[in-house]
């Protein structure tokens, strides 16, 4: 199962190789050309010589992770986050390190030994370490090098009513949606970009957008969802099962209103549920693509994701399915010539 394979693969920013391998194998039979750029972004071209605006679909392959930056004499590993990791969620988690996927545990002082004051505060990042069971520094360095990366050790599974649980839905769910779309055919020039290093600053998308020079771009993402009973409506971001989320403004983009209207109208026309993302924080690759060259029209379609950047995350299978339907409908509408900028300009 593709989504399972993608989420269980290892791919922190800059180390996307395993994910790229899976995607290359998966989509190769369906595209005209497939290649990587110098940063490692996997670019897939399909029907590029057809008439019509060139559409770039973007999904980033990388996930947040940890990087080993030191080894103590005791053999314990010091690390630093790669991307936005909340240190408070790290304590006592299982991780896998390096391409050999060496198992490790993020250790911490047990409650029995903590002083009353220590129990009141989260353990600071510099007091956390990864334990790989090494007996000393030399033993540790026989298995791990500085610069090796680690990701959470989480298995994909179905959970509850119509949900799935895994690590790294951000943004393997986007990669999954893009793969499914690339398996279909549309009467528009289409370029899929599985980008690198989004979590450290939209770096892969910046170079990819310059190379591809699209007319229209859509980032396929996972986005914050915290729809608990104790959260007011304006603080939940999105709702699970509420359909794919469209952005009005985030930390790095103000929506292109015309394309936003086009996407909303398309969803309504095709009877696809959607929601507007109700939070300013966060961003995605579209922010970088929008500013590329002479500017690019487009937006983002995001899957509501509970517990973003945490070891175990939850998405709704229905939301994923509806996102695929929405991207499919948008491409059909563009192919039919129904995206006309002026028509959506108020």
């Amino acid at each position: 199962m593709l989504l399972k394979r993608l989420t269980q693969a290892m791919g922190p920013s800059g180390f996307e190789d395993e994910v790229r391998g899976i995607l290359r194998e998966e989509v190769s039979p369906y595209v005209d050309a497939i290649y990587t750029d110098v940063l490692g972004t996997l670019i897939c071209e399909k029907g590029r010589s057809q008439p019509g605006p060139c559409v770039m679909l973007d999904a980033h392959m990388d996930e947040v992770g940890l990087m080993v930056v030191g080894v103590e004499n005791s053999g314990l590993l010091r690390f630093r986050p790669l991307g936005g990791v909340d240190p408070r969620i790290l304590v006592a988690k299982r991780v896998r390190i390096g391409s050999s996927k060496l198992p490790g545990v993020i250790g911490s002082k047990p409650i029995h030994l903590q002083k009353p004051d220590e129990q009141k505060h989260p353990i600071p990042e510099d007091e956390l370490f990864i334990d790989i069971g090494a007996k000393d520094k030399e033993d540790a360095l026989a298995n791990v090098q500085l610069g090796d990366v680690a990701v959470f050790d989480t298995l994909y599974d179905t959970i509850g009513d119509g949900c799935v649980k895994a690590k790294s839905f951000d943004d393997r769910v986007g990669c999954y949606i893009l793969s499914e779309i690339l398996k279909k055919s549309y009467a528009v020039p289409l370029v899929g970009a599985f980008t690198v290093q989004e979590e450290v600053g939209l770096r892969g998308a910046t170079a990819a957008a310059h190379r591809i020079a699209p007319d229209i771009a859509i980032a396929l993402e996972a986005t914050v969802c915290f729809d608990g009973p104790f959260v007011p409506s304006h603080s939940e971001g999105t709702r699970l099962h509420g359909g794919p989320a469209l952005t009005v403004q985030d930390g790095r983009t103000v929506a292109d209103v015309r394309f936003l209207r086009f996407m909303m109208e398309t969803a309504t026309k095709h009877n696809i549920p959607y929601q507007l993302r109700r939070v300013k924080g966060g961003s995605n690759d579209f922010a970088a693509i929008q500013k590329s060259r002479e500017g690019v029209v487009g937006g983002a379609i995001s899957i509501p994701l509970r517990y973003m950047h945490a070891p175990a995350q939850i998405v709704s299978s229905k939301d994923v399915e509806n996102a695929i339907r929405l991207v499919d409908a948008i491409l059909q509408e563009i192919a039919s010539g129904n995206w006309v900028e002026e028509r959506f300009a108020n």
């Binding site: 790095r252 103000v254 002479e294 500017g295």
Partner: peptide, 9 residues
């Protein structure tokens, strides 16, 4: 966010 595109052009 806008000015780069115009400068590029």
């Amino acid at each position: 966010r806008g000015v780069g595109a115009a400068t590029f052009a």
